Amino acid sequence: KNAAKIVNEALNQGITLFVSDNKLKYKTNRDSIPSELLEEWKQHKQELIDFLTQLES
């Protein structure tokens, strides 16, 4: 999976991924984040940080 797909899947579940101080963060109104999503974010962390940083610049 690529970073764009992961970010879109998160958005579809009401979760916004973003970068703050070079760290991957998220915002959501959900009570909890599915563990498989958290695991996927960890596996692709640097790719996600790079992707989101490019989007914001």
Rank of each mutant, 00 (worst) to 15 (best):
I49Y: 05
E40V: 15
K1E: 08
N29S: 13
T53L: 13
H44T: 03
Q43F: 10
E39L: 10
L48A: 00
Q46T: 08
I6L: 11
Q13P: 00
R30N: 08
I15L: 03
T16M: 12
L48F: 01
I49G: 01
N22D: 08
Q43Y: 10
E40Y: 10
Y26N: 01
H44E: 02
E39D: 09
D21A: 07
D21V: 04
K5V: 13
A3K: 01
E47D: 08
P34L: 04
A4D: 06
L37S: 04
L38A: 05
L11C: 11
A3Y: 05
E39N: 09
E39S: 08
T53I: 13
V19P: 02
S57F: 08
S35P: 14
W41C: 03
N22Q: 08
G14W: 04
D31T: 12
T28I: 03
D31N: 11
T28L: 03
L55C: 09
L38Q: 06
T28M: 04
Q13E: 07
N22G: 15
I6G: 00
K1I: 09
L55T: 10
S32P: 09
K27I: 09
T28R: 03
T28C: 06
N8T: 13
K27R: 13
T53G: 07
I6V: 04
A3R: 02
E56I: 12
A10E: 00
N22K: 08
S35N: 13
D50R: 10
S20P: 01
V7A: 04
E36M: 08
E39Q: 11
Q46C: 08
W41I: 08
R30Q: 06
I33C: 03
L11Q: 08
N2G: 11
I49R: 02
T28V: 04
K45V: 15
N29M: 11
S35W: 12
K23Q: 14
F51A: 02
K25C: 15
A10C: 04
V19A: 05
D31V: 11
Q13D: 04
K25A: 11
L11M: 10
K25F: 15
I33Q: 02
T16I: 15
L37H: 03
L48W: 00
E56W: 08
T53R: 11
V7E: 01
N8F: 13
E47I: 11
Q54V: 08
A10M: 03
N2V: 12
D31A: 12
D31P: 14
N12F: 09
E39V: 08
K5F: 12
F51G: 00
N2T: 15
P34S: 06
D21E: 11
L24H: 00
K23A: 10
H44D: 02
K5C: 12
E40K: 12
N12I: 14
A10Q: 01
D50E: 14
W41G: 01
A10H: 01
E40T: 14
E36S: 10
W41K: 00
N22V: 03
K27S: 09
K25D: 06
Q46H: 07
Q13Y: 14
K23W: 05
L37P: 01
K27N: 07
F18R: 03
Q43L: 14
Q43K: 13
T28E: 02
Q13T: 04
D21P: 01
Q54L: 12
L48C: 01
A4I: 07
K27F: 10
L55F: 12
K27G: 04
S20A: 12
E36Y: 13
E9R: 10
Q54T: 10
D31E: 13
S57A: 14
N12E: 15
L17Q: 00
R30E: 04
S57P: 14
T53S: 11
K5S: 13
L55E: 10
E36C: 07
L24M: 03
D21K: 07
I33G: 02
E9W: 07
E56P: 13
I6H: 02
I15R: 01
E36N: 09
T53N: 11
L11D: 04
T53A: 06
E40S: 09
K1C: 13
S57M: 12
I49C: 04
N29G: 07
D31M: 09
S20N: 07
L48V: 05
Y26D: 00
N8V: 10
F18K: 03
L52T: 01
R30A: 07
D50V: 11
L55K: 10
L38V: 08
L48I: 15
K5P: 02
Q46D: 12
P34Y: 03
F18G: 03
S32Y: 13
N29F: 11
E9F: 07
L17D: 01
K25W: 15
E56K: 11
H44W: 13
S57W: 06
E9H: 07
S20F: 11
V19Q: 03
K25T: 07
A3G: 04
E47V: 08
L37Q: 04
E47F: 05
E36W: 09
L48H: 00
N22M: 08
Q43W: 08
S35L: 14
N2C: 14
